[in-house]
Structures are given as structure tokens and as C-alpha cells.
Write a protein that binds this DNA or RNA. Structure first.
Lengths: 227, 227
DNA sequence: TAATGTGAAAGTGTTCACAGCA
DNA sequence: TGCTGTGAACACTTTCACATTA
């Protein structure tokens, strides 16, 4: 009845709301009762006006002239992002990256539960990561069906990512985060978010190399590296 | 003299150029001599027209009516991205995520060399990852200075990320990729790219939950999971 | 003729400035 | 008075359609 019609939140905003939620959780644990958009924006690494616009998609959240009530805003964001309901996920590929993700405690407090950690390597099967035992990748379909999983994380080598993806989709998964450096082909109705860690470094390097060429030749305070 | 004035390549384009370069390397190794924008775009997971526009920032690269010569285009992209010159990087925080990045062989072929892998945990010091031995974090300043490092990757716990960042900047680093879930404060002239793995999952989950609410109620072909 | 290269249009996201309200 | 909420301007990206050329 008091259900607010949260209309069409832009994807870029959703990503930032997740960051605000994390910052607010930290503030709440520190006992803070309220924050201004300026302080919250600074802690989240964004522009204050942009933050206020982001929050405005949820309707009025704050008190003019004062700021935002930390616990109330936190709950509002949690609800908007759907953190309240537990989500069952599977993760395929328990190498270093998969282990890092599975072991990240932050997921548990945000509604995510890894009900299946899968790997093709028998040597890794049975390892316990973040409280869950690694199972053979053969169990994929069984785990997905048993828990009604709709979200999967792929951290396998690139060579097998597509076949793993096909099996996930066939089993009923509709949303996939892919860390393998290949573009996954999926049928309509299935979402893939591609995350490419090496591209981040490459973009940074590009911007870095441009620094000297940009404006004035270069500053004296910067030492030249090569002999 | 034949230096082409590559003017103002958008950041979004730079990120995709890195992906194209990876795909082209695969095609070159498979012995392919040429590709069309359609095939390249499909392998990279983008729109063909967008790919052509991306490449157009480097000037004409292809042959009308035919396509692109794989080796020539590959070299062109490599030069534009600055892959040719070797870049010295340091990585701080050799947990699972740091180990995953340090062990990724793809960096070596793209001009990146990790000249320093640093960790605060004495138990990890001395481990060899990707051919490089882990050193104590106390050596940070020494490594940065010795190799003229300007690029760093931070994969430490969130609690120490800012202090590590401060030390990196003081030592001369100008570009940082930060995987710790905190916004880093840096002086002007220093670039930070924030990568937040948990946010990716959160955005995906948000879109996933919206699927049922979107357009028509839902399709018959999709099974409902919960009992 | 079959593909590239590219203006122009549409869409999306960000920033600004200020009205509105405790 | 101070900070939120937001329309309007701006900047950036993507998409489309088609002229262009080997």
C-alpha cells in the first residue's frame, strides 16, 4: 500500500547505490546517526550532487537543511537493491579468483549465499572455502535445480567458459557474471556482465602514458625513470 | 614523421580496444589473415558499427569491401595502447585476488611486468607467484624507486588500503587500480580506477529481480523455482 | 558489390544552479 | 541558514543510415 513506485533506476545509479549501502553500513556500525550528502559522497568517491540525484530515484530520503538519517537510509537502500531476500548463487572455477570471491565475507551480509562452489579439478574438490565445500563440476545441474539458482559466477579458464555457460543456462540460470576473458554467447533473456580485470590495468596504463603528452611538457617534480 | 595524430580517444573506446587486441591475438595465433567488423564484433561481444567507430579513432584501418588485415590491425592497436613499451608495476596484497592477478600470464604479453609483489604477512613472503618472489611490504618504496614504477595494483584488505596508497603516491606512483572496497583519497595528478567485484554481483542481482516485473508477467518456458 | 568509414540522431549519464523546505 | 531535491544544460556514448571505395 505504501509501496513506492521506484521508476526505472539507471544501471549506473544501481551500481553506486550498492557503494552507498556499504558506506552506510560502516557509518551505522560506528554509531553515526546522520550524514550529509557531502560527507557520504566523499566517502563513496562521487560528486555530492550526483549522489543526491541517485537517491532521488527512491523518492525523498533526507531532511532538508540537515542530511540523511543513517539507519533509515540504509534500510531504504537495502530494500531497493533487494538485499532483504536471500539469493542462491553458484560459482564455477575455484582458482585463486574464485576462491577470493567465495571467501569474501561481504556477500553474506548482502543477501548472497553461495550454495554451490564447483571445480573440474579433483584435487580441489572437498576444500572448504568460506564455509562451503567445493564439489565436482558434474554436480552443476543438480545444485542449480535443488536450490532454484538463477545467478552464477564464472571464474573458469577462458577455454571452458562457454561450455560451462551453456550448462548453466540449460539448467535455468538467467544472470551470469563472467570473469573469463571471452564474450559469452547466450540466448535472449539471459543477462551476462563481463568483468575483465586485465582491461582495467590496460586502460590505466593508457591514461598514464598520456599524462606527459597532455598539457605542458612535464613537471620538474616528476623524476624520469629510464637511465 | 609518419606519426599519426590519434586525437582524444574516448575512455570507453580504449577499454574496448584492449578487448579487440586480445581477440585479434587469438585470431593471429589461429593463422587468420583477415576479419570483418561483424566477426570481430561478435567475438568481442559488441555491435559491429560501434567497433568500426572505435577503430576509426586510429584512422582508416581496413579495406573497404573486404575487412581488416589481422596482423596489421593487431600491431596498430598494440601501438595505440602502448603495449610496445614494457611497463613496471607493483602489486600490494598477495591474498587470493592478488595471486590471481599476479599469476595471470596475459599481462606479460601486453607489456606489463610485475617488478614487485608485496605482502605484510611474513608467512607469504618468499612465495613465488608467476615467476616473481613475494617481498615484505616494507620494501615498497625501494622497489618503486629502483624500477621507476608509475603503476600499482592494490589488493589489500580495505582497512590498510589508504595507508598503502599514501605510501605508493609518496614513492612516485601516479596510477592505481584499487580492488579494496574503499574510495582512496589521492592528490591531484594521481589516477585511481576503482574496481568493485561485489558491486558487479549486486547490480546483476538487481536486474535479475526486476526481470519478472518488467513487461508481460512472465514466459511459460521459464520454470518457477521455489516449491 | 560487399564491406568500411562517418556524419547525424537518439539515448544515456553527469554536472550545475537554484528553488524549496526544515 | 543550510542542505536536500530537481529541472535544465551539458557531455558523453551508442546506434543508425548511407556515402564511399577497393
Amino acid at each position: 500500500m505504501t509501496e513506492v513506485r521506484t521508476r526505472a533506476i539507471p544501471e549506473a545509479t544501481v551500481a553506486r547505490l550498492a557503494v552507498y549501502l556499504r558506506v552506510l553500513t560502516g557509518l551505522a556500525e560506528a554509531g553515526r546517526g546522520s550524514v550529509s550528502s557531502g560527507e557520504l559522497a566523499s566517502a563513496a568517491g562521487v560528486n555530492p550532487a550526483g549522489l543526491r540525484k541517485d537517491l532521488s530515484y527512491l523518492g525523498p530520503c533526507g531532511v532538508r537543511g540537515v542530511g540523511y538519517a543513517v539507519p533509515a537510509l540504509r534500510e531504504r537502500l537495502a530494500r531497493a537493491l533487494g538485499v532483504e531476500q536471500a539469493r542462491s548463487c553458484v560459482l564455477v572455477g575455484m582458482g585463486n579468483l574464485g576462491s577470493a570471491l567465495a571467501g569474501y565475507a561481504g556477500f553474506g551480509t548482502r543477501g548472497f549465499t553461495f550454495v554451490g562452489l564447483l571445480d573440474a579439478d579433483p584435487a580441489r574438490v572437498g576444500d572448504v572455502v568460506g564455509g562451503t565445500a567445493v564439489r565436482p563440476v558434474e554436480d552443476l545441474e543438480e545444485v542449480v535445480a535443488a536450490h532454484g539458482v538463477t545467478i552464477a559466477v564464472v571464474t573458469t579458464p577462458a577455454t571452458v567458459a562457454q561450455s560451462v555457460c551453456d550448462r548453466l543456462v540449460a539448467a535455468g540460470v538467467r544472470s551470469i557474471v563472467n570473469f573469463a576473458p571471452v564474450a559469452l554467447a547466450v540466448p535472449a533473456g539471459v543477462d551476462v556482465r563481463q568483468v575483465d580485470l586485465s582491461v582495467e590495468l590496460q586502460v590505466l596504463a593508457f591514461l598514464d602514458q598520456q599524462k606527459g603528452v597532455d598539457v605542458v611538457p612535464h613537471r620538474m617534480s616528476e623524476q624520469v625513470a629510464l637511465p
